[in-house]
Amino acid sequence: MLRDAIKGYEILFLKGKSREVYDLKTGNLRNIREVVEHLKLLAKVDFEVNTLYEKKETIPLINSNHLKSLGWRPLIPFEQSMKDILDFQRSILQ
């Protein structure tokens, strides 16, 4: 996720064209609820996330092939990123 995004920005800085629109996405949309549920499975600890409201978000569709044509590809699976985040947080708490 973040590491792939940083690599995408690097490619844009080096190869992107001024005034062009690039969409930095994997094509797999996830809402915050899905992310939290995945973290709960990994953590093996139940926790609750409270929100003020839940809003359906409309995500504009932009062709992500434009950035891929410059050589960017997501390399790190979502599940691995979530595990790495959890492992990092655990290392801080120890």
Rank of each mutant, 00 (worst) to 15 (best):
G16N: 05
S69E: 13
L2M: 10
L42P: 03
R3V: 09
D4Y: 02
A5G: 11
Q89V: 13
E37Q: 10
N31R: 04
R3D: 14
L93P: 00
M82E: 05
Y22I: 02
R73T: 11
V35W: 01
I62E: 09
E54R: 07
P77C: 04
N50L: 12
K68F: 02
K68C: 03
S18W: 04
Q94G: 12
D23N: 14
L42A: 03
Y53H: 11
R19Q: 14
L29S: 07
Y9H: 13
G27F: 05
L70F: 08
V21D: 09
L24M: 12
L12P: 02
L86Q: 03
V36R: 06
Q89C: 12
S69C: 05
E79T: 11
T26F: 00
I11W: 00
E48H: 08
E48A: 02
S18H: 09
V35P: 01
F47M: 06
L41Q: 14
G8N: 06
W72F: 06
F88Q: 09
K15P: 02
R73I: 06
T58N: 15
N28A: 07
I32T: 15
M1E: 12
V49G: 07
L14Y: 01
G27Y: 04
H38C: 07
N63E: 12
R30N: 11
I85M: 13
P60T: 04
V36N: 07
H66I: 11
K17S: 13
K17Y: 08
E20M: 07
E57H: 10
E79A: 10
I32V: 13
R30V: 12
M1F: 06
L24K: 05
K68S: 08
F88E: 10
P74I: 02
H66Q: 09
K56S: 11
K55V: 15
L75I: 08
I59V: 15
W72R: 04
L41R: 13
T51L: 10
K40P: 03
D87Q: 11
R30Y: 14
K56F: 08
K15G: 01
K17R: 12
L61D: 13
V21C: 04
L52G: 09
L24F: 06
L24R: 00
K7W: 05
E10A: 01
K68L: 00
S69L: 12
L61T: 12
L93C: 13
N31F: 07
E79Y: 00
H38N: 12
N65K: 11
E37N: 10
Q80V: 14
S69A: 14
K40G: 05
